[in-house]
C-alpha cells in the first residue's frame, strides 16, 4: 500500500544488522590488538589481563555506546530541524545549536572558577549548561524564522548566531585562567572517547528522552511538511510544537554536544541519506530510520578513526566531515537540478 513501508520491511532488518555489526566491530577493533576470544571472555566476566579488560570495558565499550547514542541523537535532531525550518540544509551546527551548547559549557566552566572547583557542578551541570545554551540559540533562531521567509537568510542567521557565540567564548577566554581555556580547548576538538560510564548514565537517558519526544512529534512533523499555514489549519498547535521541538533538539543535540564537543555533519547529512534510502517524507518511518542510520554511521566513522596498520587515531570530526561534506554537496546539486 505504502511504498516506503514496503521498502522498510526490507531495509529495517538490514539496518539493524549493520548496526550490530558496526557496534561489535567498534568494540573489537582498536589500536591495540585484542583477540576476539579474549573480548568474549572479558564480556563474560572472566578477567584475562587487567589492561585489556580496562581497554574493552572502560574504553571501547563506552566509546561505542557514545557513538551509538550520539549518532542517533544528532541525526534525529537534524531531521527535526530540517522539517521544522523547511530547510534542507538545517542542522545542529548550521543553526548554531552546537555553538550555543559550547557557550553554555564555556560559561559553566569559567563560572565554575568562581565557586572554587572545576567539577563543582559535575555531569548534571554540563547537561544543564548544554541544554540551556542550545535551547537559547534555537529559540532565537525560531523567533527569527517567524519573521524571515527566505530560507537562505535563515541559514545565515543561524551561522551568525554560531559565530556570535564562538566569539563570546573567545572573549571569555581572555578573562579566564589557562587551565580553563585548556579544558575548553580539549572540548572543542570533538571526541567520543572521553566519555565514561558515569557520564553515560546521564547522556543515555537524556538522549532516550529526546528520541521518545521526537517520536511523539511524528504527526506534527508530518503536518509541518506542508508548511506552517496548512499545518495550523489541520489542527497543529504551533506554539506547543515549537516548545517541544526546542526541548527535543536541545536534549538531543545540546546534551550530546556538551559531552562530546561539536561533531560535524551528522545532523545535516543523515536525514538526507535516510530520505534517499527509504524514499519517503513520512516521519513515522524517517524518525526511527534516521536514528538507526545515524548510529550506524557514527559507529562506522569511529571504526575508521583507527587507521589500520598505524598507531594513529584520527579525530572523529575528520571522518564525519570526509563522509558528510560530499553528501551535502550532492544534496545541493540534486536540488538545483530539479528546479
Amino acid at each position: 500500500m505504502n511504498f516506503a513501508l514496503n521498502r522498510s520491511h526490507f531495509v529495517y532488518p538490514l539496518l539493524t544488522l549493520l548496526l550490530i555489526i558496526f557496534f561489535v566491530t567498534d568494540v573489537c577493533y582498536g589500536t591495540v590488538y585484542i583477540p576476539f576470544s579474549e573480548i568474549w571472555q572479558i564480556m563474560a566476566g572472566i578477567e584475562v589481563s587487567h589492561g585489556n579488560k580496562f581497554i574493552i570495558l572502560d574504553f571501547r565499550l563506552p566509546k561505542a555506546l557514545t557513538a551509538l547514542f550520539a549518532g542517533a541523537a544528532l541525526s534525529v535532531s537534524g531531521l527535526v530541524m530540517q522539517t521544522f525550518f523547511r530547510n534542507a540544509l538545517a542542522g545542529p551546527y548550521v543553526l548554531g545549536l552546537s555553538s550555543g551548547a559550547s557557550l553554555g559549557v564555556a560559561l559553566l566552566v569559567m563560572a565554575g572558577s568562581f565557586f572554587g572547583g572545576l567539577l563543582q557542578f559535575g555531569q548534571w551541570g554540563i547537561i544543564i549548561a548544554g541544554l540551556l545554551g542550545s535551547g537559547f540559540v534555537l529559540t532565537m533562531v525560531m523567533a527569527a524564522s517567524s519573521r524571515i521567509t527566505d530560507s537562505v537568510s535563515l541559514l545565515i542567521i543561524g551561522l551568525m548566531f554560531g559565530s556570535f557565540t564562538s566569539a563570546t567564548v573567545s572573549l571569555l577566554q581572555y578573562f579566564s585562567i589557562p587551565e580553563l581555556i585548556q579544558s575548553y580547548l580539549f572540548w572543542t576538538f570533538g571526541s567520543l572517547s572521553g566519555i565514561g560510564w558515569e557520564q553515560l548514565g546521564f547522556m543515555i537517558p537524556a538522549v532516550l528522552i529526546g528520541l521518545l519526544l521526537s517520536f511523539s512529534l511524528q504527526k506534527n512533523l508530518n503536518l509541518l511538511l506542508l508548511g506552517e499555514n496548512y499545518a495550523v489549519s489541520m489542527g497543529l498547535n504551533l506554539k506547543t510544537t515549537r516548545i517541544l521541538i526546542v526541548i527535543c533538539c536541545s536534549l538531543l543535540a545540546g546534551v550530546v554536544t556538551s559531552f562530546c564537543g561539536p561533531v560535524a555533519f551528522l545532523g545535516l547529512a543523515v536525514p538526507h541519506l535516510t530520505r534517499g534510502l527509504f524514499r519517503t517524507a513520512d516521519h513515522r518511518v524517517l524518525l526511527p530510520a534516521t536514528a538507526m542510520l545515524g548510529a550506524a554511521l557514527l559507529l562506522f566513522c569511529d571504526i575508521c578513526t583507527q587507521v589500520p596498520g598505524k598507531d594513529i587515531t584520527l579525530p572523529i570530526n575528520a571522518l564525519t566531515s570526509l563522509i558528510g561534506a560530499p553528501v551535502v554537496i550532492a544534496i545541493i546539486m540534486k536540488r538545483n537540478q530539479r528546479l
Binding site: L223, L225, Y230
Partner: peptide, 15 residues
C-alpha cells in the same frame, strides 16, 4: 513535498 505521493498529501487532510 519531496518524496510525498499524491495520496499521502491528500491523506494529511485526515490528520
Amino acid at each position: 513535498a519531496g518524496y510525498l505521493s499524491v495520496e499521502q498529501v491528500i491523506s494529511f487532510g485526515r490528520y
